[in-house]
């Protein structure tokens, strides 16, 4: 059984986001980069499946050389080998075409990734990869159990969950609580240094969109504090001033 886990290299959730180059690029100064939190759930589940059933787990990132520490962390968590496609990711179609081309050349039984990246928040790559490969895709998956080649999954729907069944191969976009995040141990960190990390050149995947500029939300005005012994005044303000109730 071969599992491919696609990971993003994104700013830590606590990062303060600013932009440079006339608001066209993320300013990386002072930002800690991490494995995308949703991708981290996908990776943790893949490693659990490997530990329970045996599997080869390959991690894939579309990114330039600066993402390699993030890839090594995924190897430390338990992936067996890694592939970096040496392209700056700019567009969901571009990333999906690169992943789909890789999977066509290197067969896998299961492709996992996060439901969305936390930088572009596109949430599109799993569906695009599924369609490009002619495979089913399911997202957001909260539970994934494999029995032979049959998977039972729970996916989140508005106000609840839906349980579905399908057979391999397929693509799944993952989210909590599919698995607990894994923290690499010292043995994992040491072995990650020597695990294979293959770098592949750009195959020339076309962009179908480009960000022309970023901007930040306007600063919030100061909070209006209502004394707690006159809490009911809040309701009047929400009715007459904010007009939201």
């Amino acid at each position: 059984m071969k599992i491919l886990v696609c990971i993003t290299h994104v700013p830590d959730t606590v990062s303060k986001i600013t932009f440079s180059d006339n608001n066209t690029r993320l300013n990386p100064a002072g930002i800690q980069f991490i494995i995308g939190p949703y991708d981290d759930y996908a990776l943790a589940r893949a490693v659990e499946i490997k530990e329970a059933n045996g599997a080869q787990v390959t991690v894939l990132n579309v990114g330039k050389a600066d993402t390699e520490p993030t890839i090594r962390k995924a190897l430390a968590i338990g992936a067996d080998d890694a592939v970096r496609i040496d392209v700056e990711p700019q567009d969901a179609f571009q990333v999906a075409r690169l992943i789909a081309d890789y999977v066509k050349a290197n067969p896998f039984d299961l492709v996992l990734m996060g439901r969305e990246s936390i930088d572009y928040n596109g949430g599109l790559v799993h569906g695009l990869v599924g369609e490009l490969l002619g495979w089913p895709s399911v997202s957001p998956v909260m539970k994934l159990d494999l029995n032979g080649t049959t998977a039972t999954m729970a996916k989140e729907v508005e106000g609840g969950k839906e349980y579905v069944e399908l057979t391999l191969p397929f693509v799944a976009g993952c989210q909590e609580p599919i698995a607990e995040w894994k923290i690499p141990n010292m043995r994992g960190i040491m072995s990650a240094r020597t695990k294979p990390l293959q770098v592949l050149a750009d195959t020339g995947a076309a962009l179908s969109s480009e960000v022309t500029s970023f901007d930040l939300p306007p600063a919030k005005s100061a909070v209006k504090i209502i004394p707690s012994d006159a809490a009911e005044q809040l309701i009047n303000l929400l009715h007459t001033e904010a007009k939201v109730i």
């Binding site: 986001i17 936390i118 930088d119 572009y120 179908s208 969109s209 480009e210 500029s213 970023f214 930040l216």
Partner: peptide, 16 residues
């Protein structure tokens, strides 16, 4: 679009 989980916005041009 809303990006960086609501911390920023992106103007995105679509090709084709």
């Amino acid at each position: 679009r809303s990006v960086f989980t609501g911390k920023a916005f992106a103007q995105t041009r679509l090709a084709g």
